[in-house]
Structures are given as C-alpha cells and as structure tokens.
Nucleic acid binder design. Structure first.
Ligand SMILES: [Mn+2]
Ligand SMILES: [Mn+2]
Ligand SMILES: [Mn+2]
Ligand SMILES: [Mn+2]
Lengths: 222, 222
DNA sequence: TCTATAATTTTGACTAATCAAAATCTTTTT
DNA sequence: AAAAAGATTTTGATTAGTCAAAATTATAGA
C-alpha cells in the first residue's frame, strides 16, 4: 500500500500534468509544490519508479504510469469530495478546506468515500469549481481558459479557481469570482499587466495577470 | 506535534488505564494491543518519556503524564465522535466503524472536529455506549460492571460493549446486546463458565465468561 | 532456595523520508 | 565558444518506527 507521502507526490504530479498539459514533470516543480528540497524530490522519484508509480527520466522529469495515474486520480477524487463535504455539510468556507482535505484524503477508506459520495448526492464539481473524478478515474475536462486569455468585451462565466491560497480565495469570494458568476471584460491592458471585469449588476474587479491566470472561465453567449 | 504512532500509543495506554483501573501499564500489554513486538513497545516507551508524554518505570510499565493524558483524552474524543458520525450520518453498522475511526482520528483537525460535534448535536455516547470525553478532557465514568459480575435473577440494562471485534459486535447486535436494552440474568453457572440472559420479550442469550466480561451493564429497578 | 517460565530489555539491522551542501549537467548570456 | 546561471543529482547524515533474536530480570513452583 502506498504511504501518504507517495499519495501526495502522485496527486501533485497529476495536477501539474493536467494544468500544464505536459507529460514529464520536472523535479524542481515537484519539489516546489511539495515543499521539499530538490534532492528529496529526486530520491523520491527513484523510489516511485522502483515501485512502478512513475517513469523517471533523469534531468528531465517524471511521468505517471497507468498504475500511478489511477492512484493519483483516486486521490484527487478523495480530495475534492472531502472539500465538498466540508463546505456542504459542515459549513466551512472555501478558503479553509484545502488544508483539511489534504490530511483527510489519506485517512478515508474507499468504503467511507462511497458512502460520503452518496450522502452528498454524487456531486460533479468541488467548491472551487474543479471536476471530481469518477470512481473509475475519469475526469471531465472542461475547455475553460484563464481569464488572462480572453479579449476585451468578452462575456464569460467563471468556471473554477485554481489557486488554493487562503488569501486569494477570500478575495475572490468577496469579488464574486466564484464558479457560475457572469462577467464581462471591460478593460485589458497587456502592457500594464491588468484586466478589469464587470458583473451584470455593475460590480467591478481589477486583476493582475498573475492572478487572472488562476481563474478559469468559459465564453458566455449573452 | 505528536505523530499518529504516538497518538495511538497514548490513546491505548489511556483506555487500558480506564478499563483496568491501573496506573502503570506493562509493556507486554501495550505491545499486544498495538500489534508490535515487546521490544518495540519498550523503545517507544523511552521516546514517549523523552518527549514528556509518559513516565517510564523499567520492568514495570508506563503511566501518562498530565500532558500525555490530555492528548490521549482528545484522541478518545476524536475516535468516538467519528464513530458516531459514521453510524449516525453515513449509516455504517457498528461493527465496521472502529477501523475507520482508527485512521480518521489522526487526520481530523480540531476545527473540523468541533463542527462535526455541532452537526451531530453534541452526542455524549458513541455507538458502542462508550462515553465521549468533553472538549476539556473530562470523561463521564459510569459505574457499569461486566455482565459476569452480576448474580442470577438480576434485572439490568446494557450500557456498553468494550470489545471492538467485528464478529463479536455482529453477534451482539443480533442478540440484542446493545446499549439501553433490558435483560434479566436467568442463569449463571460459574463452574461451566456460562451466563444466560433473557429480554422482557423472552429472547434468550448465552454467553461464556470471556465474552460476558466484554459487555458492561447497570442494575435496573424493574 | 533453586530452577523453570514468563516478561522485559538490549542489540543490531532495516526502511521511508527528509535536509544541507557539494558535484554535475544544461541552458542562457555574453 | 566560453562563462555564468540555473536545475538536478549525489553524498553523507538524521529521525521515527519497526523486527528478530539474544540477554537479562522477575515470578512462581517445586
Ligand atoms: Mn495530502
Ligand atoms: Mn478544490
Ligand atoms: Mn488510530
Ligand atoms: Mn466505540
């Protein structure tokens, strides 16, 4: 059985793979998201390969094997279902749940997970708008793009928030940057690194590109 | 912060202390309940003492320090609240929950625990009839005694089941040996190591002493 | 009291996960 | 193409937790 360290590595490798649409994740990036030194990530890559979770290409990066991807998907399912439970059932705010789910995901059994899924009514998206993988490891890939990719005057619907940072999430909620919300891009200054959005009710939000990349949206035919 | 291994050791030491009403728990008993070799328990006792969780008396046993008892009580609270959640909210049977809570107890934060407590309506007993320690570490000690301690013709009420064994719990449920159920002892053969109980509805149950020691009850004035 | 048995401790070894710092590649810049 | 900067790997060390088996100590029976 995989340790929770292994589960964390695999899950983060999967998330990077999905987000960046790459197949080999470099060690430096892994070290960064997991908060370990690069040397640790390298030595871990070797044990992950030894146990058949990943393929390791020295000086290039790692990619998940089928077995590794399966476990990683399952971890993502656990994580996102737990986040949903924490918000829907226990009434947490969406900026508090990531750290909690990060621990619980390793402790919850398949049996409890399925009961929870039933109890929640088999939700398809987590509170941040991220799709919850199915029991079989399928994930609904949405064609949503970062806000920074849209042009001025586009009408769009917020789909999800990638960043799990507490402060950013709290700001996002106040700014109505939440899944389902409709906006129009009323300003975009590439040279000034800035985007301005407006709700139909007239509420304005300004975002730098760094932040705009962390919010995904779909064009919306008004 | 204590590792989950430390949390398990302390919790089991507390449970033995409460059950057996002793203050120094011998290493052999610790090794047994935790499923490790005696040598492991001894070396663990030394690290627990080094970190101020227990006092270790070589060749005698360990006792919890105030700090150790506090943490152990908190673990017991977590364990029993989680068991209650699994039965009340997710609909598990009482013979499946112990192993699940054994893992979850280490992953749930104080914050989630308190929300859960609210959600459940601040229960005072877990599904096995065991008291749930308060947030402050107080535990309601019931004067209940093992079935094997009662005499023939006593009317009694089942208070709790100590044994967490799946098979025994399943048997107990079928035999109506559940907290709150009323029985009369209609037979007790010390030499044959056997007790017979009857519900008011006439249902009979036979128990050996070994098993009768695992079921606690209080006399009931009929 | 002496000895057999039971309980406990010690010793030596191992795995997983980690870090710091030195060494080695790669990529980018002059 | 050489030097500088950046990324990755290696090396050597540490900690927690564990086991097997030998050594020690306590306990109980003869
Ligand atoms: Mn995690
Ligand atoms: Mn999420
Ligand atoms: Mn446990
Ligand atoms: Mn219980």
């Amino acid at each position: 059985m995989a340790t929770s360290t292994v589960e964390n590595y695999l899950k983060e490798i999967l998330v990077i793979t999905l987000d960046d649409e790459i197949s080999k994740v470099p060690m430096g990036q892994i070290a960064k998201v997991l908060g370990v030194t690069p040397g640790t990530a390298t030595s871990m890559a070797k044990s992950l390969e030894r146990d058949g979770w990943v393929r390791y290409f020295p000086r290039v990066g790692v990619s998940l094997t089928r077995k590794g991807r399966k476990l990683a998907m399952n971890m993502l399912r656990r994580h996102r279902l737990l986040e949903t439970f924490l918000v829907e059932t226990l009434g947490f705010d969406w900026d508090e749940i990531h750290v909690e789910a990060e621990e619980l995901e390793h402790a919850i059994s398949e049996k409890v997970l399925e009961k929870l899924d039933d109890f929640l009514g088999r939700p398809r998206f987590d509170p941040h708008g991220d799709p919850i993988p199915s029991k079989g490891g399928m994930i609904q890939q949405i064609a949503s793009k970062p806000l920074s990719d849209f042009e001025k005057d586009t009408n769009l619907r917020i789909e999800s928030i990638i960043d799990q940072n507490k402060e950013f999430l709290r700001f996002a909620r106040k700014a109505k940057l939440i899944p389902g919300q409709l906006f129009k891009i009323i300003g975009k200054e590439v040279c000034a690194d800035s985007i301005t959005l407006k709700t139909s009710r007239g509420k304005l939000v300004n975002l730098g590109f760094r932040s705009a990349e962390k919010v995904l949206a779909l064009p919306y035919e008004s």
